[in-house]
Design a protein around this nucleic acid. Structure first.
Lengths: 149, 149
DNA sequence: CTTTGTGCAAAGCCTTTGCACTCGC
DNA sequence: GCGAGTGCAAAGGCTTTGCACAAAG
């Protein structure tokens, strides 16, 4: 994620206006190591800017995504997650609490084998590990574990 | 995907009723090598059963999914896709037309490295290759390809 | 006969959009 | 000032749910 200052310049260069609302959103994204939903960005921004509307959040996030400064992810958690991390990476998605963790491992063997894809041209490869994060795993009652009685 | 007859027995064994509507849906899923959305199953079934309601389709698909006889996929195409193929496999998703193709390759190296997942317990690994299917790639105008001038 | 399934319509969630006003540039 | 941004509210797509009736077991 670029700094708020860099994003400001980028927006100006594109003829987009830079408002306090947008700067606030830039900062929230820059500071967030998470993968917030639009709603989460909205909530965070409203703490300082009670009048901010959800529309502004969506518009700014979509502007950033179309500029390639942000990745919009659909990881099956219900809402689109916005990922400020632009380096190629994969995701661990908790099926219980919906939290998302980055995994920066490179998997060199992952590719469509020659002749298998029926002419498919790959532009992006996404690997999603689904399971339970440490705290959700710990919170499961022992009775639910497959143990002998 | 089990045969309609097997699914009928399974439903009966669970105390679920087997109606003509459900049998029709069983058959459609069994015959489909695709990954239909609920809407697609609905359209296919309505050809023979004009009075069938979308609710019945969703309920039957969700019943099958919770019984593990069907996988419900969210591949970012807008609607949930139902996958009758239960063997572990991955997907090629066309970013243009939304078509989905199976890839039955096994990637033995794909795993969360020891110590990297911060206690995350993986229950499923999904690999999605995004790009363009052969026909959508062919339909792109040559001007859009990155060539020298 | 009881329990589940069905059809219709309405509501839910997330996201987008129309409109009029405001404000950055 | 002009055009883009903003806030509000309404609409849009997909999915779920409440209700009353019909049907399966």
């Amino acid at each position: 994620m670029k700094t708020p200052e860099e994003l400001t310049s980028l927006f100006r260069a594109r003829g987009l206006k830079v408002t306090p609302q947008r700067q606030r959103i830039f900062t929230i994204l820059h500071d967030s190591p998470r993968h917030p939903s639009a709603e989460a960005v909205y909530e965070a921004a409203r703490a300082d800017m009670p009048t901010l509307s959800l529309r502004t959040v969506y518009q700014t996030l979509n502007d950033l995504a179309s500029m390639g400064e942000l990745a919009a992810l659909d990881l099956g958690t219900g809402a689109t997650r916005f990922d400020p991390n632009l380096s190629p990476h994969h995701h661990l998605v908790c099926i219980q609490c919906g939290s998302i963790t980055d995994l920066h491992t490179v998997f060199p063997d992952v590719a469509v084998p020659t002749g298998a894809g029926d002419g498919f041209t790959v532009t992006a490869t996404e690997i999603v590990f689904r399971g339970r994060c440490a705290s959700c795993e710990a919170a499961r009652t022992p009775e639910l574990h497959p143990t002998h009685h």
